[in-house]
């Protein structure tokens, strides 16, 4: 896989998403149902990335490595985010758990 091609494609996709409405410059009423679907996009796609990562399904699709440091780091990060509502605190606590459980070789 060429990294350059991936980057070029991503850059073009962002232009395609950001530019057409401005270039046409017409008022467009986005239908309510589309607007609602768009609003859920980030939550859906990010959760679909988080959960397989937390359960190490990329390394073991059969789920045999579900008990791992990243699962506990995920739980800690969710708790931190709920309690602090602060993104940097969420990262610091999640990363702290992920690294220290590996260091202690708990699993």
């Amino acid at each position: 896989m060429s990294v350059g091609i991936v980057i070029l494609g991503m850059a073009l996709i962002n232009l395609v998403l950001r530019c057409p409405l401005f270039l046409v410059a017409n008022h467009i009423r986005i239908p309510g149902i589309i607007e609602k679907a768009l609003a859920h996009c980030p939550v859906a796609v990010l959760t679909a990335i988080i959960v397989p990562f937390a359960l190490h399904l990329d390394q073991a699709p059969d789920g045999s490595q579900w008990l791992n440091p990243d699962l506990f780091a995920t739980i800690a990060a969710v708790a931190a985010s709920l309690l602090t509502r602060n993104l940097m605190a969420t990262i610091a606590i999640g990363l702290g758990v992920a690294v220290s459980l590996r260091y202690l070789a708990v699993f």
């Binding site: 609602k36 609003a39 859920h40 980030p42 939550v43 859906a44 990010l46 959760t47 990335i49 988080i50 990562f53 937390a54 440091p69 990243d70 780091a73 995920t74 990060a77 969710v78 985010s81 709920l82 509502r85 602060n86 993104l87 969420t90 990262i91 999640g94 990363l95 992920a98 690294v99 459980l101 590996r102 260091y103």
Partner: peptide
């Protein structure tokens, strides 16, 4: 060392802050 968890933690923070509605919770 597990440092790649930093990217996942940013995603978690972004998702959790949006989970206030029943629709968002269902999507997640």
């Amino acid at each position: 060392l597990g440092l790649e968890f930093a990217a996942i933690a940013t995603f978690i923070g972004m998702v959790v802050q949006k989970l206030r509605t029943a629709g968002a919770q269902t999507a997640a």
